[in-house]
Each structure stands twice: as structure tokens, then as C-alpha cells.
Amino acid sequence: MKETTTSPRLLLAQRVAAILILLGIWWLVIASGAVPSMLPGVSQILAAIGKAFVSAAFWGALGKTLLAALSGWAIAAVVGVVAGLVIGSINFLDRSTSILVDFGRSFPVLALMPVVIMLLGSNARMEIVVVALSCLWPVLVQTVYGARRQEAAVSDTVAVFRIPPLLRFRRVLLPSALPFIATGVRISASVALLIAVGVEVISQAPGIGRQITLMQQEQRWDMAFAYLFFTGMVGWAMAAVLQRFENRLLIWKRQEND
């Protein structure tokens, strides 16, 4: 791999240029009339974004979505990490649960929506449950994996120096699984937002997803696109922040791998 060093400023300029090119293509496609006329042009979307930015309804909806996403995510993270460490460190449990875990992680939870709506209704509680159910699997699978792949030398060391179980859990199992836990928690954070919006789109529970479908039904395509764009930005920012945080937290892991 060649590492050509580009100055950060040049890189930024290039990236902005790439985005402008993309917007230009969008504008051209619209202008050519080759696509259905509902699609809004660049200027309309930009205007709509400006409008969304000062709209209380938009921020309220975004807040509701984020709250549901974060609550579900937090529940899934706690449950997933504790269950994952226990399952991953006990061989018997690991083998016994593997089929159920594989089933759970491949299950499209959004397909359960009609059932969940029947049981819990179209509200924030239902949304949190669905988000938590979806986020649980990445955390659980990663944590089990992290707890399972304990180095033979580490477990020998723990045995020889007769480290008591609780100390072992806290100072050996948890930190050694932490890189995997962090990845699982990070993955599930983006899942949380995607699922929360999906739930709102399907169930019409209040939030940004509902706003998007409402705008679309009112033929306000520019607003719908603006909202979609915004949600994408929020998800992107969340992922970037978590990645930073993870890198900082796991400085020993990165150093060791160098």
C-alpha cells in the first residue's frame, strides 16, 4: 500500500468537490427529465433542509426518534454484554445457545412488526422494544465471541495464579472481550437508528420516520428528502463519534496490533 500523504486541507477540498459533483449529477438527472417528476431538485432539497432546520416539529420528531433509538440501544447493550460474557465464558451454555443466537441474529425483527403492534400498540414503548430486540444480537454475538476467544496463555496464567472468579471476570474477561464488545455496541448504535426510523415508517409511531411518510403522502417530496438526508447525517455523525471513542478506549489493543 502506498501511503501518499495528502494534506488535510487538500483532502477536505477534494471531498467537498466530490460531494458537489454528486449534487451536480443529481441536478443533471433531474434537469434531463429522465426520472419521474416527483423527485425534487438540488435547490428544492436545500431549501427544504433550511426549512427543516428551523422547524420545531422536525426537531421534536428527531428527538423522539433518537430517544427511542438510544433507550433501545442502551437496554440491548447492557443485556447483550452481561448475557454474552456469561454465555461466552461457559462452554456448555455457549454450545446450548448457538442455534438460538444464530436464529435471533438472522431474524428480520421488522417482519415481526405487525405482531408487536398487536401486542403492544403503536407507541414509544413498542418502538423501544423492537429497537432493543434488533440491537441485542450484534452486541450479544460480538461479546460471546470476545469472551470465547480467551487466549490459552491468559487462561493458564489466571489458573496458575489462582485468580478468584469475580476478579477474573472484572479484570481479565471483560477487558479482553472489550474490543469485541465495543465493535458490537458500535454496530448496534447504527442499527438502532435505522430500526427506529423503520418502526416509525411502518407503525406510524411518532418520530422522524412518520414525518417522512407524512411528507411523502402530502406530496412534499422536497421535505421528505430533506428529512431522510438529515437522518442519514445523524446516523453518520453517531457512527463517527463512536468510532473515535472506541479508538481512544482501546488504545492498548491498537498498539498491540501494530
Binding site: 490459552a152 496463555a153 491468559v154 496464567t157 496458575v160 489462582r162 477487558p175 479482553s176 498498539q255
Partner: peptide, 18 residues
Amino acid sequence: PDLAVVFQDYSRSLMPWM
């Protein structure tokens, strides 16, 4: 407790997070 061991895999038997 009367036995201590030094392993060959020093890089693995030391915990990198400590």
C-alpha cells in the same frame, strides 16, 4: 500458591490492558 509459572508465551500471558 507454592508454585509460580513463567510461560513461554510472555507476550500473551501478560495482559495488554494492564
